[in-house]
Simulated assay, not measured.
Amino acid sequence: MDLVALATICDLVPLNSINRSFVKQGLNILNYDIKNKGIVTLINQSKINQKISEYHLGFILGPRINAGGRMGESYLGFNLLSCENIHAATQYSSIITSKNQERQKIQNKIINSLTTLIEESDAINFFYDPSWHIGVIGIIAGRLMRGNKKPSFVMTNSNDLIVGSGRSTGGLNIGNLMIEAVEKKIIIKGGGHSKACGFTLEKDSIKEFKNFLFTKFQGFYPEKNNFYEMNLDISVINENLLNDLSLMSPFGQLNPEPVFKSENLKINILNIFKEKHIKCKLFDNLGNSLIGIFFDIDVIKFKEYISKKDTFNCFYKVKRDTYSSNVIAHIEDIH
């Protein structure tokens, strides 16, 4: 059941009905009766020293296990999860962690190279480079989409063809668009769902495919308003609130984690990690404060933005910090 929970979260399976029960029971095993030596060693390698949640499965353990496949060595994940020898599992865990770091370096290099090429006037992000590693194009598309909230399509070579991944915030169903492109013989094959897709096409079809997508998204404006459950005073963000929220977990597809809004907060930057994550202090005019973290953000643009105003409305999820175990905010957006 522990592996079922891991797969359900990482594959974004809807957490309705029986699936939510599967994940809940799998998390119980991971926390109180874990026997899988591969997962044990990966938890230790990841320096997780708190109760395992769906967050750890989806954002810490899952990406590491997938890293082997993304870097062309998919057997590493299988060997790790099926290993019965703790010493061998430790070796596999170390190799997988190294592959994940290699994957991160590749994707960060690509993202940095694209920063100056993004056209703000374009309806979508559309990029192709034959030198890019096939294992990271989906991640790149997701990063671009989160960066400017535009549908993003990223492609590279695979033998004599071009393969690509797309990510979107929703609205137009990009999975259905891929099926339509196949029917119109623009691409060879493709599919997906409203927020993610994959596709394959001939090299001489790139321009036609690009025109097809630009036409579909021309005049389409994704929802700009931030959805949130309720307004919160940051003075009530504490252990009690986190414990109450845990009663609704595990969170995932069709059971989204609540987003909260706090108004008129000041922001001070505390630390910057890996040139893309920002740890900051949020505080109100009564002296209440909260530690918040932005992930995968343009640091320079963020600094410029917060220098123009004194206070901000912040949208965030309440979390337990992976390393300190303190209650913190994972910030989604500010205005």
Rank of each mutant, 00 (worst) to 15 (best):
K319N: 13
S235I: 07
A329F: 09
K317A: 04
I306P: 07
K99V: 15
G69F: 11
R167H: 07
E54K: 05
F227H: 12
G170E: 09
F315R: 11
K266M: 12
Y128G: 03
G58S: 07
I331R: 08
N66P: 07
C83F: 08
V154N: 03
G135N: 07
Y32C: 03
I65T: 06
H277V: 00
R64T: 13
F251E: 06
G171Y: 09
G72I: 09
K184Q: 15
L286E: 14
I179W: 02
E332V: 10
N264M: 10
E257H: 04
D284F: 05
M71S: 07
G219M: 04
K216V: 15
M178F: 05
F212V: 11
Y32A: 03
G135Q: 06
L57E: 08
P130E: 14
I293V: 15
G166R: 04
A5I: 05
N19C: 02
I18S: 15
A88W: 02
I52S: 01
K261G: 02
I139M: 02
V327R: 03
N231S: 14
T90K: 15
D296Q: 14
L76Y: 12
L177V: 13
I34Q: 08
G38E: 07
H277I: 00
N19M: 08
N100T: 13
F220P: 10
F227K: 14
N285L: 10
L213T: 14
G68V: 12
E84P: 01
P258V: 10
F212I: 13
L42S: 06
V299L: 09
F227W: 09
T41M: 11
D321H: 13
I52W: 00
A123H: 07
L144D: 11
T116I: 07
A123C: 14
P222D: 08
F217N: 09
F214S: 08
G192I: 15
T215D: 12
M145T: 10
G175Y: 13
N326W: 05
V236T: 14
S205G: 02
K189G: 01
S113C: 01
N125W: 04
P130V: 01
I267G: 01
M145K: 15
N19A: 08
K51F: 01
N288F: 08
E229H: 12
R146S: 11
G58W: 02
H193K: 06
L144W: 08
L80C: 07
L161I: 00
G292R: 09
I39V: 15
F22D: 04
L177R: 03
G191T: 12
D233C: 10
L114K: 01
F217E: 13
N44H: 12
G72F: 03
V327M: 08
D33R: 03
N243H: 10
N148M: 11
D244K: 15
H193E: 07
I140E: 05
L213N: 07
S53Y: 02
F199I: 15
H335T: 12
E257K: 14
S205L: 04
F78H: 13
S262C: 13
I179E: 12
S262K: 00
N157I: 00
F295E: 09
H277E: 09
S235W: 06
V4P: 01
E180P: 00
F251I: 11
K51S: 02
N85M: 03
R70Q: 08
